[in-house]
Design a protein around this nucleic acid. Structure first.
Lengths: 117, 117
DNA sequence: CGACAATGATACGGCCCCGTAACGATCCGG
DNA sequence: CCGGATCGTTACGGGGCCGTATCATTGTCG
């Protein structure tokens, strides 16, 4: 079940999806924010600021600010860890799950349209 | 030669490549800039500001500023159209071609690593 | 020639993101 | 109990992108 994709197809796929994203008035996430959102929704919880920072190779303020933005969009939520009150646990939301699902639809749809070569 | 990709695979692919892009210190293009760059390198020339604006569904200043940024990075070049001096023709560069090729490598490599489901 | 259209660039005010440094809160070990 | 480590946040200065409106240049057509 290996996914065989040629360089030309990869680029066309990337372009088509990005065109869709540009036209989608709502979605305007940066590369960092996208990486964070997908990590939260694809990897097993719990997720912490420090963990995400290490995972992405960025500093903690980057994560904090990204969570501020994603939170403002309703795509994630934060909650204090009751066991260790220094930690913050990032939680998923319905809106976030929908947004991720929407992205998946976009990519699969565009992939299906790709011709050969 | 249709590209079959499942939603879960699409999301994992999207995430892995975005993680690579975040770690790549250099690349920090916005969604718009990426769409513009790929359009320039995948569609047949000539490319104009107006044409790209219409193609992406954005205003002309967006294109002008994106070209400023991409030009500063050496990924594209602008040249006055001698036949109609109102037009500006966007040209490709070696560095730009390399960057696009690099992206293609990234996507194909990550796609190849995707397991089933 | 002269009014008008079209092209791309620029000005402006606003908002968001970045990296570094510092901060308050919390936990831990002696 | 208390100094130090850890966690997440905030402050600061700088830079980039956005949308709207406006501009200079060039072309077109009566």
């Amino acid at each position: 079940m290996v996914l065989e994709i040629k360089p030309t197809q990869a680029l066309r796929l990337w372009r088509e999806v990005h065109l869709d994203l540009v036209r989608d008035t709502q979605a305007d996430l940066s590369v960092r924010q996208t990486a964070i959102l997908l990590t939260i929704y694809l990897e097993l919880p719990p997720h912490t600021v420090r963990g995400l920072a290490a995972r992405l190779g960025v500093t903690k303020p980057v994560i904090t600010r990204a969570l501020d933005s994603l939170g403002k969009l309703g795509l994630v939520t934060r909650k204090r860890d009751e066991l260790d009150k220094r930690n913050v646990v990032i939680q998923r939301t319905v809106a976030g799950a929908l947004a991720v699902e929407h992205l998946a639809d976009l990519v699969t749809a565009r992939a299906r349209e790709l011709g050969p070569a």
